[in-house]
Amino acid sequence: MRVITLNVNGIRSAAKKGLFEWLARQSADVVCLQEVKAQQADLTDQMLAPKGFHGFFNCAEKKGYAGVALYSRREPDRLRVGFGSKEHDDEGRYLQADFGKLSVISLYLPSGSAGPHRQESKFRFMEYFFPVLKILRHDGREYILCGDWNIAHKEIDLKNWKSNQKNSGFLPEERAWLTQVFDELGWVDVFRTLNDKPDQYTWWSNRGQAYAKNVGWRIDYQIATPGIAKKVEKEHIYKIKRFSDHAPLIIDYDYKL
């Protein structure tokens, strides 16, 4: 089973850069997209459901903003749109597809970088979502939460960690929250089970030559329950072609969907 997650920073923009031609060659079983920045009525048939896939969306009420999508080869048994926080559900940040005993979730945490009001919204998301994570962790199902969590967990997860300790995405309380998700609740950072090297990033600022110099952040994750996390076989951050300011995170599991 191949699972791909990518923040597209505008699905229409990513499409123009060749995203769907690339996806057609990836043999993915599930693809999770974040920040689609569109309503379903704005999208082409290819964007709504690429050939061979079923397509599902949770778009933000505000046009051109946030929103998540999920494509799957197999039709899900059930879909869950939103996680119960009206503020964040209105922004289209959670979409869950159930396949047998496995659920895959496309997730997009708020960014706090636009100002204090957005950081407060991010903290509210974290506060509301933690008990949800606790319930999911213990409900007997396997989960893979794919997406842009907008938090770099450890110093190894961003190039300039010293100068970013007061910036959104690397605040002590954000990092401590993610540590709780892993250590207290028992979720697994799947990428790090296979790759413990530095300089592994999924997002680069458009300022300067961040991408060319690999001055990046690892803020896109596949975070899973231990059972499915143990079935991980291979990880890859795809950087040959760029579809947005994020890179696709591809993980293969020894699991049949």
Rank of each mutant, 00 (worst) to 15 (best):
F129E: 00
Q119D: 02
S163D: 13
C146V: 14
N164P: 02
K154H: 04
I151N: 02
V132Y: 06
A114Q: 15
I144A: 10
P172Y: 06
N164T: 03
E120K: 11
S113A: 14
Y143S: 13
R124P: 00
M126C: 08
H117V: 10
I151L: 08
K134N: 13
R137S: 14
L171W: 08
S168P: 08
Q165R: 15
P172I: 07
W149E: 02
R124C: 03
N160F: 02
E120R: 13
K122N: 07
N164A: 11
C146K: 09
L145P: 03
I156P: 01
C146F: 09
E155V: 02
K134S: 14
L171S: 08
P172K: 03
A114H: 10
K134M: 06
Q119W: 00
L145N: 06
W161K: 04
I156G: 03
G169R: 03
D157A: 03
S168E: 08
F125G: 00
D148Y: 10
E174R: 04
M126D: 00
G140C: 15
R137V: 03
P116R: 13
E142V: 08
I151D: 03
I135W: 05
D148W: 07
S121R: 12
C146P: 12
R124Q: 10
I156Y: 04
S113W: 07
P172W: 04
D148Q: 09
N167W: 05
F130Q: 09
N160C: 05
N164E: 05
R137E: 09
E155F: 02
Y128V: 00
C146A: 15
S113Y: 07
R124W: 01
A114E: 15
I135C: 02
L171E: 05
P116A: 07
K166P: 01
G147C: 07
L158T: 03
Q165W: 07
L133E: 03
H153E: 05
Q165T: 11
A152K: 07
V132R: 13
P172V: 09
S168A: 14
M126Q: 11
D139H: 11
Y143V: 12
F125V: 03
H153P: 05
L133M: 11
E120Q: 10
H153W: 14
S163K: 11
I144P: 10
S113N: 15
F129H: 05
D139C: 15
F129A: 00
L171I: 07
L145C: 09
F130I: 00
M126K: 00
I156H: 02
I156C: 04
L158Q: 02
K162M: 10
K122Y: 04
D139N: 15
E120Y: 04
E155D: 12
F170E: 03
F170Q: 05
